[in-house]
């Protein structure tokens, strides 16, 4: 009985320790960052290597990189997920091969993606240090997440729909478009949001693909600095950049929180209005 009580005590202690530590981290960034944030900080360009000014071009670059990554990865990921769930019940060699590749892809460290992106997109394809290179690199990185969530969503759709549709002589394509994809849509969107979060948080894969330039980008072929690289640069390479780095970290965390909240809100909304939302999609 003593052992049981001791274990309970220890487990509660661990939970409290973890909670307190993480609240400390968040509080540290909020307290130090909040005083630096103003409307100007969000709308101005950085000056003096980031010690002064704001982060407007950096937010734009981040948004562009993430947007490109998702726009490129989403269709590929969805297509792969559909192939794996709907057309490969028979464990074909091809499907097994694709799944194995995805397992490996999911475990590639982000710095290795950085090396690959630098060698392939920046140099081999001649895209240079650009937002496009960065977006393509991140697209490779988020693909496994998008595919895994979409596969889970599609697997969770009732098989009854597949059989009933088939029994009515409906092709698999029609069943997918009108029945299965709308039903799996919440999971697919949740995966997209997870992917956006992962892409926004990424640093190492971007240093040698999208580069460091903190000017407002003119096009996706320009180099652009992401928010995470900005934090890294300010804290490591710029003496006296810590306070602005705190602010940038706060902005990044708030953006991630907003994305998180959107995904939770969407999940709830869909649970409530599943049928109606399907009607709209069709």
């Amino acid at each position: 009985m003593l052992k049981n009580k001791l274990a309970t005590l220890l487990i509660y202690l661990v939970a409290v320790l973890i909670t307190v530590t993480f609240i400390c981290i968040l509080a540290d960034i909020i307290i130090h960052g909040f005083s630096q944030i103003s409307w100007g900080y969000l709308t101005e360009s950085p000056s003096d290597a980031g010690r002064a000014g704001g982060i407007a071009p950096i937010i734009v670059s981040t948004a562009l990189i993430v947007f490109l990554a998702i726009i490129i990865a989403a269709p590929l990921g969805l297509a792969t997920a559909i192939l794996l769930t709907e057309f490969a019940q028979q464990k074909t060699i091809f499907a097994g091969f694709v799944e194995r590749c995805l397992d490996v892809l999911a475990s590639v460290p982000s710095i290795v993606f950085g090396l690959f992106g630098n060698a392939f997109f920046s140099l081999y394809l001649g895209l240079g240090f650009s937002i496009l290179s960065g977006g393509l690199t991140l697209a490779c990185m988020v693909l496994p997440i998008l595919i895994r969530t979409a596969v889970e969503g599609l697997r969770a759709t009732p098989d009854d729909y597949r059989f009933s549709a088939a029994a009515l002589g409906i092709t698999r394509t029609t069943a997918l478009v009108h029945l299965l994809l709308p039903t799996a849509m919440p999971a697919i969107v949740a995966g997209l949001i997870l992917g956006i979060g992962r892409a926004m948080a990424e640093t190492a894969a971007l240093i040698f693909t999208s580069g460091y330039v903190d000017r407002m980008p003119d096009s996706v072929f320009d180099s652009g600095r992401s928010l995470s690289i900005h934090i890294y640069d300010l804290s490591m390479n710029v003496a006296g950049g810590d306070s602005k780095a705190h602010a940038a970290a706060l902005v990044l965390i708030v953006m991630l929180l907003i994305i998180n909240a959107i995904s939770m809100g969407l999940a709830k909304h869909w649970q409530k209005n599943r049928i109606i939302s399907n009607e709209i999609i069709i």
Binding site: D160, Y161, A167, L168, L179, P182, R274
Partner: peptide, 19 residues
């Protein structure tokens, strides 16, 4: 598809589509 149009099937559990 044509065969199944001619031979319809009803399942144990009613499966109305989410439409």
């Amino acid at each position: 598809q044509h065969l199944r149009r001619d031979i319809g099937m009803i399942f144990q559990k009613p499966v109305p589509f989410p439409l």
